[in-house]
Design a protein around this nucleic acid. Structure first.
Length: 225
DNA sequence: GCGACAG
DNA sequence: ATCTTGTCGC
């Protein structure tokens, strides 16, 4: 049986290690920004993680790695990170480059115990991370405007835990939250700097394509690798 | 007790 | 997350 009680307690303890301010980007520009995503195969028995590294500001793909491992845990709301971080770590260790910033598919501190996958991964590998989720896990927010760029703070018990951003017109908004070693304002800023007219920022879009769509490569004109 | 619930 | 092409709407 899964000791969910212990896992939640571990999240509460490790969440104290999350650094909620800019630790590296206050005064300079990142050179490599990565996107990370996780998918499943074989009826969910195999977990596949993909990390795509883009050069900034060109936003061109310079490297990507994929790792597959046996699935270690089923999906349990609030405990997603324990299910996905092992594969992410495996893909991370395959990289020859060291990204300056990583955008992770999922929540950062916009989590019941302020320790979503983006924060968990960021703390484990000690790298600045941003949580870029496609839906809400917790918190409340006012309706977001329809115009691209419109946003609303994501609040939980009087505390701002993220920003709900309309990254593209007629698309559901993105839930942005700080993962580790970055402020919420910088997190949103960098996500917007990586936008190219799609719902998802380029790093996440590439990781998504690599982790899920095999047709993503064929249809996307790109050099390298 | 009931509803919500990242991927 | 995953099963999956074409199709409706702006």
């Amino acid at each position: 049986m899964i000791d969910t009680k212990a896992l939640r307690q571990e999240q509460r303890e490790k969440s104290r290690l999350v650094i909620r301010h800019d630790a590296f980007f206050a005064s300079f520009t990142p050179r490599f920004i990565a996107g990370a995503d996780v998918g499943f195969e074989k009826s969910g028995t195999v977990t596949r993680a993909a990390i795509a590294v883009l050069q900034y500001p060109s936003l061109e793909l310079v490297e990507y790695q994929v790792a597959r491992i046996d699935t270690v845990l089923p999906y349990i709301p609030g405990l997603l990170s324990f299910r996905e971080y092992p594969a992410l770590i495996a893909a991370w260790q395959k990289l020859s480059l060291r990204p300056d910033l990583v955008m992770v598919d999922g929540q950062g501190i916009a989590h019941p115990r302020r320790f979503g996958i983006a924060s968990h991964f960021g703390v484990l590998v000690d790298v600045p991370t941003i949580g870029v989720a496609k839906s809400r896990l917790c918190g409340e927010h006012a309706l977001v405007g329809e115009v691209q760029g419109d946003r609303q703070p994501l609040m939980d018990h009087g505390e701002q835990i993220g920003v709900v951003l309309r990254s593209k017109k007629r698309c559901n908004p993105l839930y942005i939250s700080l993962g580790h070693k970055i402020s919420i304002d910088s997190a949103v800023f960098w996500v917007e700097q990586c936008m190219k007219g799609y719902k998802l920022p380029e790093p996440t879009r590439w990781a998504d394509g690599i982790a899920s769509n095999g047709s993503f490569f064929k249809q996307t004109t790109q050099k390298n690798l």
